[in-house]
């Protein structure tokens, strides 16, 4: 498995014991990344959402039941299943920081990458995006609006990375050595519970560096070797067990 390594590796550590499933991250993400609202969002598998909060259950009956919520952004795999399959290089993992890019004007909308991604992190613009009249005035200038027919996904608010670098340049700092907190995603910023921590997984000065090494940390579907850059933490064994497929006789770490 060839895993792309970078000097800087942006990543997340999401504490599932702190997430209460309020959805602030999802709304913040939509507003930040210019996703269009939709009148009927019932069909969850046809609704655009770069970040989805899944509900996890320990599958025990009342009163032994326990619940957990799992925010799922793009996992920014080190060995992305989606990148190599794209016929037109519309998605790539090549930039310092290790964010999997998605270039809308290049995408032809074949959806092969969606078939490849087991995290369902990729979404297709089934129709043209429509904002209620006037609401387009609240679009940010940071992210281009996507037409129908292209695939999109969470970019770790890549535009904030660009801005952080520009700010560093303007202030005479090294744009390659951003401090912890100089660049955070919109979801991590919004979370009132501080469940999402964002930073450089390779930099010991960043909190995620240490969190990703916690005994409670593991990644989604690790055994598929996608080598993701999003870590999930939970002190609950049953939660950790649901982060990957385990046969009955297999133990889970932590």
């Amino acid at each position: 498995m060839e895993i792309k390594e970078f000097k800087v590796k942006w990543g997340m550590a999401i504490d599932l014991d702190k997430c209460t499933g309020c959805g602030a991250c999802m709304v913040a993400c939509q507003a930040e990344n210019n996703l269009a609202p939709i009148a009927d969002a019932s069909n969850k598998i046809k609704v655009m959402n770069w970040l989805v909060v899944y509900e996890l259950s320990n599958k025990k009956p009342f009163p032994e039941h326990d619940v957990a919520y799992l925010p799922r952004p793009c996992q920014q795999c080190g060995h992305p299943p989606c990148v190599s399959v794209c016929p037109v290089v519309a998605t790539d993992k090549n930039e310092e920081g290790g964010i999997v890019s998605q270039i809308y004007p290049r995408c032809i909308g074949c959806r092969y990458c969606m078939a490849a991604c087991p995290y369902h992190a990729r979404y297709f613009n089934w129709l043209d995006p429509v904002w209620p009249e006037g609401m387009e005035k609240a679009l940010t200038p940071d992210v281009s609006v996507r037409p129908r027919g292209v695939v999109e996904k969470c970019s770790f608010c890549h535009h904030r990375f660009m801005k952080a670098k520009d700010k560093a340049i303007a202030e005479g700092r090294d744009p390659e050595a951003l401090a912890d907190g100089d660049y955070v995603t919109s979801c991590a910023e919004a979370c009132p519970n501080g469940a999402i921590v964002f930073g450089d997984l390779n930099n010991p000065d960043h909190q995620v560096y240490h969190l990703s090494r916690s005994k409670y940390a593991s990644r989604l579907l690790e055994r598929l070797h996608a080598n993701t850059q999003v870590y999930y933490l939970s002190r609950r064994e049953w939660v950790r067990r649901q982060l990957d497929n385990y046969l009955d006789n297999e133990k889970v770490k932590g």
Binding site: E95, E96, I103, S155, H158, E176
Partner: peptide, 12 residues
């Protein structure tokens, strides 16, 4: 210049 040609260097 650190100006790599990766897609995300210039696209948003």
């Amino acid at each position: 210049t650190r100006s790599s040609n990766a897609c995300y260097v210039c696209h948003k």
